[in-house]
Nucleic acid binder design. Sequence first.
DNA 1: GATGAATGAGGATTCATTCAT
DNA 2: AATGAATGAATCCTCATTCAT
Lengths: 223, 223, 223, 223
Amino acid sequence: MSTTAPTPLTTRREHPTKGDRTAAAILAAAEDLFAEKGYDGTTLRDVADRVGIRIPSLYNHFESKEALYGAVLERGLGPILELLSSVVAEARASEAPWPPEPRPIVEAMLAVLDARPQLPRLLLRETLAGGTRLSPELRDWIAPIFERAGEAAARGVDEARFGADQVTHLVLAIYHVVVGYYAIAPFYKQLGGHDLLSEEARERQARFVADLVENLFSPNTSR
Amino acid sequence: MSTTAPTPLTTRREHPTKGDRTAAAILAAAEDLFAEKGYDGTTLRDVADRVGIRIPSLYNHFESKEALYGAVLERGLGPILELLSSVVAEARASEAPWPPEPRPIVEAMLAVLDARPQLPRLLLRETLAGGTRLSPELRDWIAPIFERAGEAAARGVDEARFGADQVTHLVLAIYHVVVGYYAIAPFYKQLGGHDLLSEEARERQARFVADLVENLFSPNTSR
Amino acid sequence: MSTTAPTPLTTRREHPTKGDRTAAAILAAAEDLFAEKGYDGTTLRDVADRVGIRIPSLYNHFESKEALYGAVLERGLGPILELLSSVVAEARASEAPWPPEPRPIVEAMLAVLDARPQLPRLLLRETLAGGTRLSPELRDWIAPIFERAGEAAARGVDEARFGADQVTHLVLAIYHVVVGYYAIAPFYKQLGGHDLLSEEARERQARFVADLVENLFSPNTSR
Amino acid sequence: MSTTAPTPLTTRREHPTKGDRTAAAILAAAEDLFAEKGYDGTTLRDVADRVGIRIPSLYNHFESKEALYGAVLERGLGPILELLSSVVAEARASEAPWPPEPRPIVEAMLAVLDARPQLPRLLLRETLAGGTRLSPELRDWIAPIFERAGEAAARGVDEARFGADQVTHLVLAIYHVVVGYYAIAPFYKQLGGHDLLSEEARERQARFVADLVENLFSPNTSR
DNA sequence: GATGAATGAGGATTCATTCAT
DNA sequence: AATGAATGAATCCTCATTCAT
């Protein structure tokens, strides 16, 4: 489903070779499958079939199923974590109440996820699994985000509404509102609901999330 | 090969027999394991080991792994869905703005989940899987809940804040805030955060969710 | 399918007890199943289901699956072997050309098989299996039959037609013509042919076999 | 899970590859075992052991146990059915009484079976099982053979001896005489008889069958 | 780089059998 | 005599991985 297929992080050449293209196709297929069926529910046969190659060929590009999964996570989660890191770091550095204007941030965030709607499911699967299969690298990246998001939020939140000890809950809530939306989309549709990933629905969600965040953080004044 | 189905596998007697106790133990073990590792990640060996029996004995109580999973889901999700159904139905019947007082509802909801913190993970896993393994029975139960929750919310929501077309997003958001909290707890703890399932944390979350709901639905006045 | 269910050979009481009746029902069910699906293809669950009892109850009547199979064979093959033995013994004793009048013998034979059309299949299955599961008892019974049948036939056969060294082939041929007919009946019917076990068909077969035997043994005179 | 079927399992190349040789060895082993012990009595372990490979390797060549059985049947029964088909078709086309000279046909038939004495047992097992595991393909092949054999025989048979309504019985009889001989051979030997598959015995049987057929069809004249 | 073949480990499930009730 | 529960052994089959070509 994902359309962009950048070169894998581990090997960067000037010209994308045929091998690079295969590797990218594998990553794309694996991302979809891991998101849809989870690590244990995805077989290398599934991946190879979707790419149109045979199983052993996968090993020319990735050392193992775990390595492939790691590569998918890294490629997928990297941009998100970078975005979050920078936002959080920025907010941390500034003295202004956080966030000065939530809309751009929310929109940047959702733009990333819109381009790769599988990532939230990947993310959620990882949190459900307790980060079991997260590389130490990725884990070290994630931990401070929550931490700093908490710090930042602590300064921005309307204390009349949420106590300082509720900041963690606030951060987690926003996280779940955002990723949960994408994760539930296929199920919701299948249940008879409309397509949450349609253009309009995603715009509505963007507005909704922005409103929500703004509403939560700002003092009691409606926009 | 067999044509008659000799042993009713779900009959309950007056006195809990040895078999009933074993079945209950299997269900408990399976609930934990399915929540932690997912359907594909859980083996019948895992379940049997945790119960302290041998694998074939599982088949004296459940017809198959899928049937066991179904039983876990039904037993676990039943109370939640009933609660939601009754709340939604009630709200639907009354003319008063919904909910008249969110706190009791939120507390009832969280009380159920507190007693079985695995259920949210089970739920979330199902939504991630697109309800693939949901029995038609359970699916028919879930669909109208979202639907009616939307109707009810449509009457209660502060229209100055959220448009009518955002009600679905609102309902999903609350759902994800609630279940996501439990789902991420083990990961959060492992990442160095505190225990989200501790007494205090759960109380904070209860307050937070109640505040959030109240805040979202009531007009712009803090309590 | 078989309707008569005499008491098992191992226990003969005056009044058929309830247990005896169960044992008979088990034997009847097992005879059908072993004939239809063979020893390996028949499970004790199949047998128990058909009788309407639970598997462990089978063990109140038969020591093991093998013992049950043995009992079925003994009960089923006994009458046939007795008949054959007596015929052969009789022919052996007499000096007259054998058989003086084949019709009665053929008819007696077919009467037994008509009453229990499963037996030929059981028999054929055993010969296919090389008598692997035949009790030594039964095997000792069978061996001399062929032997004596050969001797007898040797005297009766039209030597102008079949050489003495072909007597074995002759005996085997008759054996296969007879038992094969019953064995192939279900398949033949299913292939679109008519029912070989119908009254008329069986009568035709009786006539055919009698003609064949007569024809083979008698000098070149048609009936 | 997989959607495409990547590896054609039955393709034949010009040079027999290693895989082809393995597949042939598997077929040979399976043919013996299925003939000796039947489908249910044969385990893939048996097959693998006889070939000298491990069980999972079987799946590189055949999709399942059933598929392997089907391949054995097709490969084994194909030549027989072809022979029968051609004989029957030929007889059907000609106007001469059938068969003009039975000996060549019987000899051709027995030559095929002599080369693969397991096939008759395979055949007989199938008829005993009611063709349960016969592929529709094979079944469609078999049905018309009996049918046409009946038609052909109807023209050739000595009507003074066998009525038209006995033709089916005649055809079945010949079939059983032929295949039964091979099927019973191991048992007969084990019972103390001589080896029915020895050179001499097979020649005797060939003569016997030819005599029998000739005798049955021709008017009352010995050869 | 691609793949046919092979395989150790393991997965769900069935089966015959036992035993306490 | 009947059976619910338990289980060792085995069955078919899948999976990730390796290796020679």
